[in-house]
Write a protein that binds this DNA or RNA. Sequence first.
RNA 1: GGCGGGUUGCCCGAGAGGCCAAUGGGAUCUGACUGUAAAUCAGACGCGGAAUCGCUACGGGAGUUCGAAUCUCUCACCCGCCA
Length: 413
Amino acid sequence: MGSTGAGFGFEVRARLGAGAGRTGVIVTPHGRIATPAFVPVGTAAAVKGATPEQMAALGAQALLANAYHLYLRPGADVVEQAGGLGAFMNWAGPTFTDSGGFQVLSLGAGFKKVLAMDTAGLADDQVIAKRSERLAAVDEDGVTFRSHLDGSRHRFTPEVSMGVQHRLGADIIFAFDECTTLMNTRSYQERSVARTQAWAERCLAEHARLTESRAGLPYQALFGVVQGAQFEDLRRGAARGLVRLAAGGREFDGYGIGGALVKENLAAIVGWVCAELPWAKPRHLLGISEVDDLFAAVAAGADTFDCVAPSRLARHGGVYSADGRYNVTRARFARDFGPLDADCDCQTCAGYSRAYVHHLLRSRELLGYTLATIHNERFTVRLVDSMRAAIESGGAAGFDRLRDRFLSRYFGP
RNA sequence: GGCGGGUUGCCCGAGAGGCCAAUGGGAUCUGACUGUAAAUCAGACGCGGAAUCGCUACGGGAGUUCGAAUCUCUCACCCGCCA
């Protein structure tokens, strides 16, 4: 076990052929995570619509929350006083917190959902939110946010993010990074990667200091975050830069891969980055969960994933099935009394029909969100679990067989 | 029986002579969603396969006017208040 801190470690179990993919086990003070693994997102210390008991029952091994959101509400001190994130939300297993780096994007250049909307026909400067409208402004030292809740001003720096995440007490925390968009220019990406690197160094130093001063508390693992958009040299350079860092006698316990990616180059990006990262440390791919992306990323060497898509889609009627994703609120499902996915083993599919979930979601009955969320989270967790099983029992051939069979059915002929 | 108010597209409801096929909601239909400002957002929504075109339409009918959902008369129905 390549342990980097008391109570935390990672061990590779099986390699995916001669490639970068592998299975393994992450050990945290709150339990183990068999990888590859999908980690459902509960931004505000809750997976929207589902209880921790339901998340455990559907096989979630860990949950990921957000430092920025919890800092604003209820406040890191409240979570700390509750005994940490897991205790606060009644989740006994491992937890992650994101640093707030994503909010640099979502409240900054990507504000008002412009990046998520169909941007066809819009000029680049229309796609990136106007500076005057943004709620986040980046500078070399950190980010100034205006709260989306009440407009109040807040300052996040690497040190602040570390302080917040230490008080939240998740098992795995992320360095404060700047998440950019594909719309940013090459020269901006270069400056941003340099800034994220500088912030990573400060995070590591502050993390070392806080870990020291908070002796006796469960160890928190710190992951550096690799940025660099779609540029190979920037991605590789960013990864190398983080690997080289050491401060206060510490290095990163693992690495996150974040930022601007499009499907077409996701596998390449993860591959470049993983080629530069130490084999013995876990790699978390931030914010990814579409089925083809998961297959590609696992093959390219990512160990864990988190994403809001399963729960968000569920609330909006989007349902995963072995035969592809569909919208259960469509009229044709009003009298479809079969399960959401005939191949699914989740609690929802065991007893509830498409017609019922269709009705609940259209009626905005809260149970509808819960049932659909349980299904989508189970679908995604189980998919990644099945990749792990395929690698461990069938090696590269087993993984390829699973991928080909799954994707051809999912995307249809 | 008297007086007053009302009838608008699937529903609710604006509109008070041309800029009205008719504001807004809702419903309906479809789509989007990848480290959650997301139980959100976008488009469609009288008919003609689409239209800068035509047709039908603002309770029914008849009028006034170059022109009516908007004005007049009348009929029908609904709601108040007084008998």
